[in-house]
Design a protein around this nucleic acid. Structure first.
Length: 460
RNA sequence: UCCCCAGUAGCUCAGCAGGCAGAGCAGGUGGCUGUUAACCACCGCGUCCGUGGUUCGAAUCCGCGCUGGGGAGCCA
């Protein structure tokens, strides 16, 4: 008999009659002449209640079923007299795939996120993490759908890169050499004998390659894994995370901001529309303000202010910040959150940052003091998107590379894109996990990815 | 990497002016019940993170280490 998923069962107009369900037992309660089984198969947050009657052939076996056990149920879908559910299954047959012994770590109560991280192999079976990973899947789909609907071309940028100074944190080196006994030349490791003939690393960003593709295909985006070997221990950083990076030819900073705002609104609306049930769990148990925050994101026009104005606002607030504010200093998380949560009470975009605090590839403005950078800042998270119009003038670009300690000859291919048919273009980067945090209210990035990689943590 | 906090039963946590290790949940047994994190009674459950030290005596005080959490830096 063909298996029916609980999600399609519960969304049916009427009874589907005789059905076959397969899943895991959430909890079981015994009554006088039958047993109530809550069954979940991961297709949705909701369980289905299965009634096993005492006169079933294997009722004694059924009564031994524990939380976490895996079963197959064949039975009749019927309306339920109980208050908590519309439908239930009157079982005809229950086949046990496997009993979960009594040391099954997940109980019928709330566990701490810290404990669940230690059992990453089992936590997707909880309501909260099941909901999280279903939303993550929908969000990935929404990202692709948004760009596809706008005619963007999805590109896959390399995971292994030969650029060793992209300036975005520490790199993970990739090698095929025997680290116990590497070939040496004058006392140094001889990389000419490594796999690529030179040192290689895991990518810290697909942006530079995405620019090359945009300057051929127009509008492109990458959505892939990114790696930072930074020894950072915070609730917002991981060694391996996923990043969405669009890049648009013939697009200036203003168009870039328009696009970033449309993106955030689209994916927020998509999740609110398609993940209502899973989202309600987070609104109830994780962040009481969640729905309000999401509605503000979709309805409010994002405030746009230049960095200089943002500094003026922050300077006018006295005795509030731990870190000083003045022109030429980057905004701290506390400053960003003050602007989004307290001052404007909605998302905002800060643009035209001092060039001294931004990387070489951002376009230098006419004032020669600022660059055409923009950060989208949202309540609770702070910066969620960072982007810029790119420097398309080859002489200015080379000058900026030298100023920031980067050897232009290592990036001959990047400079070539400015030599042959250079055009103004823009792009931005979004941390996929930070989007997840924004949309679910989950406060630790380790809880929005199935198997997080952080310093000292590579289990599962 | 820096600062702060924590580590006690399978889980959540109490015990910490030094004096026999506790509760709820989970598990087991029995009862009751179209039940809803069901309910009632009884039962078992410990390297008190590790390691040195102070003390007649340390879960409790002190040093070091490990692990986890929060914050910072870096950033996404």
């Amino acid at each position: 008999m063909k298996r029916t998923k609980i999600k399609s069962l519960l969304s049916a107009e009427g009874s589907l009659g005789s059905v076959c369900l397969k899943g895991w037992i959430k909890t079981r309660r015994d009554a006088k002449s039958f047993s109530f089984i809550e069954l979940n198969d991961g297709s949705c947050l909701e369980n289905i209640q299965v009634i096993a009657d005492a006169n079933m052939d294997n009722y004694e076996t059924v009564k031994k079923l524990t939380t976490g056990s895996a079963v197959s149920v064949v039975g009749e879908m019927a309306s339920s007299p109980g208050k908590e559910q519309t439908w239930e299954i009157h079982a005809k047959e229950i086949e046990v795939f496997n009993f979960a012994p009594e040391d099954y770590p997940l109980q019928k109560k709330r566990h701490s996120d810290e404990f669940l991280r230690t059992i990453g192999h089992l936590r997707p079976r909880t309501n909260k993490y099941g909901a999280t990973f279903r939303i993550r899947s929908e969000l990935a789909f929404a990202v692709h759908q948004f760009f596809h609907s706008q005619g963007f071309i999805c590109i896959h940028t390399p995971i292994i890169t030969g650029s060793d100074c992209e300036g975005a944190g520490e790199l993970f080196q990739v090698t095929a050499l025997n680290l116990e006994n590497p070939p040496k030349n004058d006392g140094h490791v001889d990389y000419t004998r490594d796999f690529f003939g030179k040192p290689a690393n895991l990518t810290v960003s697909g942006q530079l390659e995405a620019e090359l593709m945009a300057l051929a295909l127009g509008d492109v985006y990458t959505f892939g894994p990114t790696f930072r070997a930074e020894d950072s221990n915070t609730s917002r950083h991981m060694a391996e995370f996923w990043m969405v990076e669009p890049e648009m030819a013939f697009c200036d900073l203003s168009g870039n901001m328009d696009h970033a705002e449309a993106f955030i609104k689209y994916i927020t609306d998509y999740i609110m529309t398609h993940c209502g049930s899973d989202l309600s769990l987070f609104a109830r148990f994780v962040d009481k303000m969640l729905m309000e925050t999401l509605e503000t994101i979709t309805s409010a026009e994002f405030i746009r202010i230049p960095y200089k104005k943002a500094i003026e606002i922050l300077v006018s607030v006295k005795n509030r910040f731990e870190y000083p504010v003045d022109f030429g200093r980057d905004l701290q998380t506390e400053h960003e959150r003050f602007l989004a949560e307290t001052y404007f009470k909605q998302p905002l975009i800060v643009y035209d940052y001092p060039k001294s605090i931004k990387p070489f590839y951002m376009r230098v403005n006419d004032d020669d003091q600022t660059v055409a950078a923009m950060d989208v800042i949202v309540p609770r998270i702070g910066e969620i998107i960072g982007g810029s119009q790119r420097e398309e003038r080859i002489d200015v670009l080379e000058q900026r590379m030298k100023e920031t300690g980067i050897n232009p000859s290592d990036y001959w291919w990047y400079l070539d894109s400015r030599k042959y048919g250079s055009v103004y273009h823009s792009g931005y980067g979004v941390g996929f996990e930070r989007l997840m945090m924004l949309l679910t209210g989950i406060s630790n990035v380790r809880d929005v990815i199935p198997f997080p990689r952080t310093p000292g943590n590579i289990e599962f």
